[in-house]
Design a protein around this nucleic acid. Structure first.
Lengths: 338, 338
DNA sequence: CTGAAAGCGCTAACAG
DNA sequence: CTGTTAGCGCTTTCAG
């Protein structure tokens, strides 16, 4: 019953509420016989602990906030799953907040989460210039939080990253090894860490390997299927066609796949398409997508671990953990046709 | 600051804590000048309300629990998105709980959610015999909860359903209109409402239309891609081949698509495949999946509305809301080849 | 090892 | 309209 309190339990067990509290929290030795009587009273009364009252005293709620753009986006869904798993393992719950990358919404969520006294927040905000986080950090530098896949200038916050340069380089190396020289690049929101670093990686690779970069081959849209579809169409209407398209995420790549199909361009025979992320979807496309796999599960799990460690005071100076992506070759890429 | 309380605010504003509380809650008239002084004090102190303390008194947390099998499953992800949106609209947060349909895990989540005094729970448990829910209902019949896509025997609980018979019938009607007579049926976990009703719908349709049902054509697996793949393979190795496969969800259909491709069977020319749900994935398969669309967004939104209404006492006798599915014809189905 | 008592920060009568 | 007061249900000294 929700109405019963430790007073009821105490009375029934013939002990004081302190003793009841002690067995509830395992906080200090309680005579075995008393512990048993308390446990039995709890059982018989169907007592349900009020964790709100406990939190009011203990100053922790064992609840985490997770701020993401959109849980219906498979990329975030997978991270969320990992976060929730790791949280549950450590007896934390997670409140999920969809912001659609709207800073106003995000600010409102942050405020309410703090008012509900959640213990920490995990941000997956892609934006590199997120003033909400910056502000929170400045006002409460000690508040436990961690960033996934992003960095905020001037904020020493725990962060989990996947190495974008490496991923991009691997992909480009692979593509060029197949003989591709004209490689189109479609990326998403430019104010995003992923966009920046992947674009930089693309440019770098070309430069370091003495390949000229053609600005006509570089298009910017959004990290969405629709956007990938449109930008790929643009690319495929160029006079001097690319032989491969490197998409800055899988959704873009999926859109590109569709554009190619619609235009009667065979993948991978006439055009190679390479994605980024390795979301679950990438297995069910036809052809199956070659992609740079981000260790999303690890990223989520690691992030959850980090906030929890910080909440529990088992962590001092902020740290940036950089995980390694790896190329997953499937069927959407092949040797350039001469 | 998190350390400041209404006492600090009251002192700074030169009023009593009651007045502060009143402006915070807009609970009763406060002289305009006082309200402003309070607001200003709040601003200057950076006061952050402690909603735990408030909840302890008010007996509500403005938090919902959402119990699902797996947020990484696009079907649940979409529902979750809708639930969270509607919740946020009504100033509720949602705690997401992944159970993998494990009743033990679920029971643990229910217990902790209640201890955290969340205001209501939305269950998307597919199982028809969920003792956790039954038990909760028996112990706390007034506790606000709603079921999505399932029913629990003997429990008068608010429920949101999509009409499985109708969906199945539509699909079968469409398939037979294309000339299909041997229609394979692959479904998932048999203890699931969706499985039962869709299977029943399949049988019904055949019976009502004087078509004989062949038990060899009816296979049961899990609601997963992998399972669809395997069962479709079985179906496609039969002596007397089906000309169409009706899958009880899209994941199964996607698996079937892959099986067909692997076996060199052309869809839809040689085999029609029809799914159920219309998850986002169903647009990106090749060919694009014909499917029975469940209004997942509406289901989630409606469910959230219902719990919130019940929480707010704006709802009396439990209700079963049945939404209508609709057939979405895409490219994975076609006329039977003679 | 146990109990009494003092809060945690807030809301809700109840007087005024 | 405002302040006083008594809790909400629990944890945590502090004595014993």
């Amino acid at each position: 019953m929700a109405g019963t309190t430790i007073y009821d339990v105490a009375k029934k067990a013939g002990v004081s509420i302190s003793t009841v509290s002690r067995v509830l929290n395992n906080s200090s030795r309680v005579k075995e016989s008393n512990r048993e009587r308390v446990l039995q009273a709890i059982e018989e009364l169907g007592y349900e602990r009020n964790l709100l009252a406990a939190a009011l005293m203990k100053k922790n709620t064992h609840t985490l906030g997770l701020i993401i753009a959109d849980i219906a986006n498979p990329f975030y869904a997978e991270i969320t799953r990992a976060v929730e798993d790791k949280a549950a393992e450590n007896h934390f719950n997670v409140i999920v907040c969809n912001t659609d990358n709207d800073l106003k919404k995000e600010a409102a969520y942050i405020a309410i989460l703090r008012q509900k006294r959640i213990d920490g927040i995990i941000f997956t905000t892609p934006e590199i210039n997120n003033n909400n986080i910056k502000k929170l950090y400045e006002e409460q530098p000690d508040f436990p939080m961690v960033l996934i896949g992003s960095r905020i200038e001037g904020c020493a916050i725990d962060t989990v990253l996947a190495n974008n340069y490496l991923g991009t380089t691997e992909a480009m190396k692979y593509l060029t090894s197949l003989g591709h020289k004209r490689i189109g690049f479609i990326y998403g929101l430019p104010t995003t860490l992923s966009s920046r670093e992947r674009l930089a990686g693309y440019h770098n690779y070309l430069a370091e390997n003495g390949m000229k970069s053609d600005s006509k081959l570089i298009l910017c849209g959004a990290f969405k299927i629709e956007s990938g579809y449109q930008k790929a169409k643009e690319l495929l209407q160029l006079e001097n066609l690319p032989t491969a398209i490197f998409a800055a995420n899988d959704l873009i790549a999926i859109g590109a796949l569709e554009a190619a199909r619609e235009m009667g361009i065979e993948v991978p025979n006439e055009l190679s398409i390479l994605g980024y992320d390795n979301i679950n979807l990438s297995t069910i496309t036809y052809p199956k997508l070659t992609t740079v796999a981000q260790p999303m599960m690890e990223m989520g799990a690691r992030a959850a671990e980090m906030v929890i460690e910080r909440i529990q005071g088992r962590r001092s100076s902020p740290e940036v953990v950089t995980l390694l992506p790896r190329l997953v070759v499937r069927d959407s890429t092949g040797p350039v046709r001469r």
